[in-house]
């Protein structure tokens, strides 16, 4: 029976690959080619919105987009970069500590916090009362406030990743260190935190992508032209460049390329992290 099915399977393989690549090209690659081609056309040609390659390549579109509104997009990249950087640092420190203790401890405190984490994973943030709290603390419309909110919203997911990874680290490690006279903070930062490196890498990449791509929260919590973020400029250009699709798509490509580079480098890490986050939740 086995010898009968083998040649059949080999034939099927080849067809599977061809069908798969063809379908993936039509469904997933064509939209990206469309962005790229149209970002390189002149205004008139781009407005046909077709998939033809550009008749002449207009690299100047990219320069035009960058120069729009006195280099707003550079300001936006700086702002988004700073928000992403600092909220990711905050998340890494806060959640590694919390995930460590939550995985090791039993009792009321731990189960209470675990419950809160679960709620935080499901429930949507209450937008307007958040503005009210931020105004009360005088951090509304500030980069500082935005960083705290972005971090707060990712805390449940990040704690979950750390807590899950902690179960693969034996508790004897800490116990031995404490017997050797090591304080609890040193145990964590000198011994445990370095061992969390693989999950820390996942945490950094996944949160960086989420926060950099966030549109909704800066829309509410960081209004004003001096505080623009990358996603908000893109949304604004959607109206401003309504008749210049070449410039609009040049902006789309400028925003997509960092993610593409990140994905090419960290493909496996990103995918594994998403799976770990989903299955443990």
């Amino acid at each position: 029976m086995k010898t009968k099915t083998k040649p059949n399977k080999k034939k099927y393989n080849c067809i599977g690959d061809i069908v798969g690549v063809l379908a993936a090209t039509v469904v997933f690659i064509v939209p990206f080619l469309f962005m790229l081609f149209n970002s390189l056309k002149d205004k008139k040609e781009a407005n046909f919105l077709n998939l033809a390659p550009p008749s002449s390549v207009e690299w100047g579109n990219y320069l035009d987009v960058i120069q729009t509104d006195k280099y707003t997009i550079l300001r936006a990249f700086l702002n988004s970069g700073l928000i992403t950087l600092f909220s990711v640092i905050l998340l890494t420190v806060l959640c590694s500590m919390a995930g460590y203790v939550l995985q090791r401890r039993r009792g009321k405190l731990a189960s209470g916090v675990n419950m809160i984490v679960l709620i935080g994973l499901m429930v949507p943030p209450a937008i307007l009362p958040t503005i009210w709290v931020m105004q009360g603390l005088q951090v509304y419309r500030s980069m500082f406030g935005m960083i705290l909110v972005e971090a707060a919203l990712q805390i449940p997911f990040t704690i979950m990743l750390y807590r899950g990874f902690m179960s693969s680290i034996p508790a004897e490690l800490e116990e031995a260190a404490v017997i050797d006279g090591c304080g609890r903070w040193r145990v964590f930062f000198k011994i445990i935190f370095p061992l969390l490196k693989p999950v820390t890498a996942t945490v950094i990449i996944l949160n960086a992508v989420t926060i950099f791509n966030d549109f909704t929260n800066p829309l509410y919590f960081l209004p004003g032209s001096e505080n623009v973020t990358v996603q908000l400029t893109l949304y604004r250009y959607m109206g401003q460049f309504a008749n210049s699709f070449n410039l609009l798509f040049a902006d789309v490509i400028i925003i997509t390329i960092p993610m593409l580079i990140l994905f090419i480098i960290f493909n496996k890490k990103i995918v594994a992290g998403m799976v770990a986050g989903a299955v443990k939740g």
């Binding site: 806060l94 919390a98 203790v101 009362p129 958040t130 009210w132 707060a152 919203l153």
Partner: peptide
């Protein structure tokens, strides 16, 4: 160890949710 995360999450998520 739990406190910093709880404080940030409490102020910017739980408090607004209750309010």
């Amino acid at each position: 160890f739990l406190l910093p995360a709880i404080v940030v999450f409490g102020i910017f998520f739980l408090l607004p949710m209750v309010m």
